[in-house]
Each structure stands twice: as structure tokens, then as C-alpha cells.
Amino acid sequence: MKPKTTTEKTSLHPRNPHRFRYDFEQLISNCPELKNFITSNKHTTEDSDITIDFSNPDAVKSLNKALLISHYNIQNWDIPSSYLCPPIPGRADYIHYIADVLAETNNGIIPKGTTVEGLDIGVGANCIYPIIGNSAYGWSFVGTDIDENAIQNCKKIIQNNPKLIEAISLQLQTESRFIFKNIIAPEDKFAFTICNPPFHASAEEANKATTRKVNNLQHVKTSKPVLNFGGQNAELWCNGGEIGFITQMIYESAKYPQQVLWFTTLVSKKENLTSIYRTLNKVGAVKIKTIDMAQGQKTSRFVAWTFLNETQQKNWTF
């Protein structure tokens, strides 16, 4: 028997509970259905020779269920077939780095509790960001989406987990061309916004990217891939793609300069940063940050901006 070693994923945020290899024994104990998807790992010499097939959407969803039970005390989580099933470690990183950004204007202390409210643009059917943010820091959230079915599924998740009922509210965006309009009311004050924007500019572009991704995971070429992480049209693409969506977000954000401490969004394509910075400077953002993140071989980042000066930031009450 080979000695058991512990491999730490040092690229993840130091507070991310997923920095170490999955403890499949514990995960299966909490979510027995995961056992049906366990397979041998032929590509590692590390401490565990078991894994799941990450090209199988049912396996990925079962792993998410197990992680949510084990780390976030979330029971009966589920999403409809073909909806986006997010990789939880990467989503957790975004939340923990936002906590660091908030701490910078709070005497180095991460603000906690339900008075810290976040706005999740495109909450999807999975409700992952609000779940992690509430579990890790006690934050409250408003989750928005243009998809009524996604909102309804989030309602089911919340109802099945009573601790979320007072912490997460949901709002349907009835005009898909807008992001903050119809959502941010005059009396609202959000500590941050969070967003995983659609990557692609068309359904064709999204399908091509998915084919490449799944072929890489399966090591077998296919022209009709099964979406391992799923995704509806609104989750995967929009007119103008990522840069179009974020540009619209920036212009709209300038209409709510005093109501949000930090606007943030993921940026998957590094080449979009130059245009994003240019637009942020055009609308008068006072401070802009780019936070780099990494999960395994994948690198990503989010951009954060505020219209508040340093004094206003420090006087923000959570």
C-alpha cells in the first residue's frame, strides 16, 4: 500500500475549503449517490486513485451535491437537466477574493452578517454564489436572472434549505437588454455585485467551444458533445459576447454610483481587459482592480470598480 500524501491546490484562495484533494470517502458518506460515478484515476500518482468522469454531467452534478452537503450544509440541491452546473471550487474563490476587497476598506476586517448584501447578476438555476457567500460570511443576496425557470429552481433550493429563506431573495429581470435597470431600487445599497457573464457571442460559437472542452476531457473526438457543466443559451452566449455584456454592465453601473460599493464581474478572456479598462475610465470609475485567480491549469480573473472616493469607501456602513 502506497503511503497517503496530501496534495494542496495552492493556486486556490487560502480560505477556500477545496484546496485539498476531494475526500471521496467522506463525500460518499454524505451523498451516497456519488458512489455510482466513482472511477479509477489513471492519470495521477497522488494520494487518491479514484475520481469521477468530469465529462459526465450526472457525475459532476452528484459531486456538487456532495460538496454542498459536506462544506455548506445544503440539502436537496438540484438543477434541471441542461442548466449550468458550476465547478464549486472556482466559484468559492471568487467569493473569498471579494471578501478581501471588502476588507481593504474595512480596516482589514472582512465584514460579515446579513447587513452585507450582494447582488448576483445571472444567479442561474444553481444559486451557487449566494449559497457560498451566505455559508462563508453570513452575507445576504439578491439573485437576478432573465430566465423564469432558473428563478423558480432557485426558489426550490431556498425552500428546501430554510436557513437561506431570510438570506436570499430573487428577482426576475423582465427586460433582457438591461442588467441593473429594474433591479436596483432607489433605496438599495449593495456592498458588491457579482457576475459570471455569458462567454460567447452566438450559439454556434458556444457549441464549438463546448465541443473542444468535452473532447479534451474525454480524450475522444465527438461532434455532438454532452455538456458536462451544462448551460442554457442565456448562460452561455449573448449578442456581443462577453465584452458586449460587460460593456453594457459598466455603462449601467455609472447610473448607480452611490448605491454599490464595488461592482465586479468575471472576465474569461484576458484580451478583453484593455477595452474594459478604457470603458471604465470613460464612465469615471474612481478605482479599478483586477484580481487574478487560478484553478489547476485554468486561469481566470475578475475586474472590480467603484465610483466612490477613498473617504466614501471608508465611510461605507455594512
Score class of each variant (00 low, 15 high):
residue 5 T to W: 01
residue 6 T to Y: 03
residue 8 E to W: 07
residue 9 K to D: 15
residue 11 S to W: 11
residue 16 N to E: 06
residue 17 P to I: 05
residue 18 H to N: 12
residue 20 F to W: 11
residue 22 Y to Q: 09
residue 28 I to C: 13
residue 31 C to I: 04
residue 33 E to D: 15
residue 36 N to M: 09
residue 36 N to A: 14
residue 39 T to A: 09
residue 41 N to G: 09
residue 45 T to F: 04
residue 49 D to Q: 12
residue 50 I to A: 15
residue 52 I to F: 01
residue 53 D to C: 10
residue 54 F to V: 00
residue 57 P to T: 13
residue 67 L to E: 15
residue 75 Q to P: 03
residue 76 N to S: 12
residue 89 P to R: 03
residue 94 Y to G: 04
residue 96 H to L: 13
residue 101 V to R: 14
residue 101 V to W: 02
residue 111 P to H: 10
residue 113 G to F: 05
residue 119 L to D: 00
residue 120 D to H: 06
residue 120 D to Y: 06
residue 121 I to G: 00
residue 128 I to L: 08
residue 133 G to E: 06
residue 134 N to D: 09
residue 134 N to F: 01
residue 136 A to W: 08
residue 138 G to A: 06
residue 140 S to T: 15
residue 143 G to D: 03
residue 144 T to F: 03
residue 149 N to M: 13
residue 152 Q to P: 01
residue 154 C to N: 07
residue 159 Q to A: 15
residue 170 L to H: 11
residue 170 L to R: 11
residue 173 Q to S: 14
residue 175 E to R: 10
residue 180 F to K: 00
residue 184 I to K: 00
residue 184 I to H: 00
residue 185 A to F: 08
residue 186 P to I: 07
residue 192 F to T: 15
residue 193 T to D: 05
residue 193 T to K: 04
residue 194 I to Y: 02
residue 195 C to A: 09
residue 199 F to G: 04
residue 222 T to I: 08
residue 222 T to Q: 15
residue 224 K to W: 06
residue 228 N to P: 07
residue 236 L to M: 13
residue 245 F to P: 00
residue 252 E to G: 08
residue 264 T to E: 06
residue 269 K to R: 11
residue 271 E to H: 13
residue 273 L to C: 08
residue 277 Y to R: 12
residue 278 R to M: 07
residue 280 L to P: 08
residue 282 K to A: 12
residue 288 I to T: 15
residue 296 G to Y: 07
residue 305 W to I: 12
residue 307 F to Q: 05
residue 311 T to E: 06
residue 311 T to D: 05
residue 315 N to G: 14
